[in-house]
């Protein structure tokens, strides 16, 4: 077996997994807190990419230096995704806080449809080219045949985001509030936690990571499209479920497993059925171990 090919696939899978992880975090956090599969989360990722593209194009045309463009476009993507996530929750989910699960799920589907077509109508159905915002690092030259500079960028960014997120969840007040609310909403409210704020914060944080993922992947692949949120969203969702929905380390683990599996499968066997794989994974996991690898199994109280 070609060792170099293997390492390429390995790092390729790692990169994929990182992107999935960034998106999966949003799914898992929202599910952990209000037990909703936010179908529209993939659209947040897509909107992040679009915003990044739009802002970076405007700024580049205005003649700004690349570094400034990258930073500002990235920030804009994050800010706007957070804003969309925040607004989405207030409109489509908050009014249904006490409604049956079916209703919220359908509302989420509606929101997903809405946002996809919103971008489609306001922008275009074409695939838009996304500039490569990541320069080729000179110091990385010798390794670039295994792991390209953009891939390195993705990996390191993901690691940084994970660290920041862990700090947020473990050590800040809002993080503790999030953990408390996800375990027992009523109790948290009784203890004086503003549950509405915590839920909004969860959506915002999840959207931020998704936006980062959106910009990174757009820059890596080189193009974006209004539909990109759908397939990425499904896969990230599979990842979240695989690792145990509601568990943050689970989301990362699941994402990596999915990324590697896809990479090795398409690299060694066939690339035709790449997408099917994710779905099969999904179905099998949910049937045999719905709580995922790291998830907590939920016992229904009678």
């Amino acid at each position: 077996m070609d060792f170099e090919y293997f390492t390429q696939l390995f790092f390729g899978g790692l990169t994929r997994g990182s992107i999935y992880a960034l998106i999966a975090l949003g799914y898992t956090m929202v599910y952990g807190i209000i037990e909703l599969i936010n179908f529209a989360h993939g659209e947040i990722y897509m909107i992040g990419a679009f915003t990044g593209l739009i802002v970076s194009t405007v700024l580049t045309m205005m003649g700004m230096p690349t570094l400034a463009v990258v930073v500002l476009a990235g920030m804009a993507a994050i800010i706007y995704s957070c804003a969309y996530g925040y607004t989405m929750e207030k409109i489509a989910y908050k009014p249904l806080r006490n409604a049956p699960r079916l209703s919220v799920l359908i509302s989420a589907i509606g929101m997903s449809l809405f946002l996809q077509n919103y971008v489609l109508l306001a922008q275009t159905s074409d695939f838009l080219p996304f500039p490569s915002l990541v320069p080729e690092f000179e110091f990385w030259e010798p390794y670039s045949h295994i792991l390209t500079s953009p891939e390195l960028m993705i990996l390191s960014t993901t690691v940084v985001v994970m660290i920041l997120l862990t700090i947020l969840i473990k050590f800040t007040r809002i993080g503790k509030a999030m953990r408390a609310t996800s375990q027992d909403k009523m109790m948290a409210a009784l203890l004086g936690i503003n549950v509405d704020q915590v839920i909004s914060a969860t959506f915002v944080v999840g959207s931020a990571t998704a936006a980062i993922g959106g910009v990174l992947i757009a820059s890596h692949i080189g193009q974006i499209n209004f539909y990109m949120g759908f397939i990425a969203g499904i896969k990230a969702f599979v990842a979240a479920v695989l690792g145990g929905i509601g568990s943050i380390p689970g989301a990362v683990l699941g994402a990596l497993v999915l990324g590697w599996t896809e990479s090795f499968f398409t690299g060694y066997i066939s690339s035709d059925y790449e997408d099917v794989f994710a779905f099969i994974f999904l179905v099998v996991i949910l049937i045999f171990r719905p709580s995922g690898i790291l998830g907590r199994s939920q016992i229904q109280k009678v």
């Binding site: 409604a99 209703s103 359908i106 509606g110 809405f114």
Partner: peptide, 20 residues
């Protein structure tokens, strides 16, 4: 025609909230 899908989406949300 091109507004069909976006209307679907909006209607789904609105129906669930106001007339489930």
């Amino acid at each position: 025609g091109e507004f069909r899908m976006i209307t679907f989406g909006a209607v789904l949300i609105l129906m669930m909230i106001f007339r489930p």
